[in-house]
Write a protein that binds this DNA or RNA. Structure first.
Lengths: 341, 341
DNA sequence: GTGAAAGCGCTAACAA
DNA sequence: TTGTTAGCGCTTTCAC
């Protein structure tokens, strides 16, 4: 049998209530008793049962995280960041994946909510966010991350997606590119549409043709296949912008397969920033999302609802930055007569 | 207030016990009552409280996972695989990261164990596995994954590391390479030492010099720095084997920086298999660990202790395979007179 | 500052 | 097959 608060109380010669107070520091306990209790607890290897504690106290120290995919490094690094923030305050993390499916999302959500977590972080599998009622019904504070429905009035943490698109496009325009291809995972996501919008606005302003939009899906295999088909037919575009990490990979893979050289034949701006992007040749120019900051802000928002006190959180969208490396250059036609803005 | 089993019971006109039986299907309930209960529950938005249920029943439906790093794709894909396996049986996953630190590992472990999970999966931060007593003391079934102490007698799931090294070395030897460099994260890990051993055995058998061993650390930045320093001085080695995903990146990055071309100047065999490895140029030859299978086996092992019945699990180590792509070729000296074994 | 006792939401005996 | 009741390990009044 596992050791309980009573065992410790008995060994220390105090009441269970006192042991509880020692561990929760809810009420002051005389130093001498604290000592005795700690010693007894150590001896028995006692650790308070969190399920029991949460049941009685009515307050949990878990936060639930629901993601579309546990194999996507963007999402997992978000988890890593949330975990790092949350643990300092004694919270644990329970994760689940909806595997990109709305029905499964609802199922997993119920399961997570059944733990009565102190808070919930969700990256919905679609920004229709069909599980919304489910969540609000639970009365659990939550924040929606990354994929935020338009006109969403709850807590949301995302990035300045329009700005991200703008930066990528401006960089490429400045290098002299005139024909653009955008590899988007799926246009059904608002954040993706926003990134497109940023790009399109720049091109329009410069009097350039609208970019060719390719929906490449949400995983690597379909991405590289669809882009491969496209590149075989296409000769004109020189500027490729990925709107997602897998789209980045897709562009690279199909350029390789078509024997196209980066950045000589085409320039590519990737999305997200992973180690492999600066290890490969050529190192990739990319739009970096501030994942760490996202985790911090997410927790900050949740925290406000859970424990109350919290540093105030600016409400604006986090901005991405463009990391310029070697996968972007002037297009062939511009040649050495490169105009630098 | 949140809705409880009593509310449902009242609305459905049955006793709380019956409601419990409907949801846990522990005892048969007449179809008609099931119907009524389900309807009432749906109406109220009731979901059984797992903490309460676990407290009373004494059996949990969570498995805890403790990793050294939530930002390492090898570990997170392991989580993804475990999650996919456990969810089918109604289990949830609670994760934590030790951030590669033994003290933190002990702390996080206590926190996880405090949930009284049904099982625990741990990738220790060192294979001294100092937290071992802590775990065994908790009386929770556990399996150690990836980094297994030598002479470990508990449940362990890992890969045939010696064999992995062997495959990589044989491939390179067959191509005609004679001078090897091995980029290992740290030789303090048994699995890494095993991989080295596999490589060394092959070289010895072929009468070749022992490989140069470089400890590159556990993250990308130190890896690429240390390898960079090395490559500046080194001219002779043509065969590079990475023993870790970050080591792979380190080799690539420093080859780039030194202006060395893969596979013309040097061949590289990477470790693990990620999308980016076949998207980049040249696509990487690599040792693939069967991550999916590892997750399945881990759960199978845990399962046996938790629910009892379980398909028998073969006890041998999972084998890796060598995925040959374009980052390996015959070394310059061998030229066209390549001997193919 | 400490102890005694009630009760969080649920399940498992025990009755009926 | 169903209802009643005790109690899982803990926290929190309420006394003292």
């Amino acid at each position: 049998m596992v050791v309980t608060i009573k065992d410790v109380a008995k060994l220390a010669g105090v009441s269970p209530g006192t042991v509880s107070n020692v561990f929760s520091s809810n009420r002051a306990v005389k130093a001498e008793l604290v000592e005795r209790v700690r010693k007894a607890a150590a001896e028995l290897g006692y650790e308070p049962d969190r399920a029991a504690s949460q049941l009685r106290a009515g307050k949990a120290r878990v936060v639930a995280v629901l993601l579309p995919d546990l194999d996507n490094p963007f999402f997992t690094s978000l988890v890593a960041s949330i975990e790092a923030n949350v643990r300092d305050e004694g919270f644990d993390i329970i994760v689940a994946s909806s595997h990109g499916d709305a029905v499964e999302e609802a199922r997993r959500l119920s399961a997570l909510l059944a733990w009565r977590p102190a808070g919930l972080v969700i990256v919905p599998c679609s920004d229709a966010f069909v599980s919304r009622k489910l969540v609000s019904g639970g009365g659990v504070p939550f924040v929606v991350a990354d994929r935020v429905p338009s006109h969403f009035d709850g807590e949301a943490v995302t990035v300045d997606n329009v700005g991200a698109g703008t930066q990528a496009a401006e960089h490429l325009v400045r290098l002299g590119h005139r024909r653009f291809v955008v590899a988007a995972s799926t246009l059904r996501l608002q954040n993706i549409r926003d990134r497109c919008e940023g790009i399109e606005a720049v091109l329009a302003r410069e009097g350039l043709a609208s970019p060719t939009l390719i929906e490449v899906g949400l995983d690597f295999d379909t991405a590289s296949e669809r882009l491969g088909v496209f590149m075989e037919g296409e000769q004109q575009a020189t500027a490729f912008i990925a709107l997602t990490n897998f789209a980045t990979l897709g562009i690279l893979a199909s350029a390789n397969r078509s024997g196209l050289s980066v950045p000589r034949d085409l320039s590519v701006v990737g999305f997200d920033d992973y180690s492999w992007m600066h290890a490969v040749s050529p190192p990739l120019t990319a739009i970096r999302q501030p994942v760490d900051m996202m985790g911090r802000v997410i927790w900050s928002r949740l925290r406000r609802h859970i424990v109350g006190r919290s540093e105030p959180v600016a409400d604006e969208r986090l901005s991405c930055d463009l990391v310029v490396r070697a996968s972007t250059a002037s297009p062939p036609s511009v040649g050495d007569a490169l105009r630098i803005a």
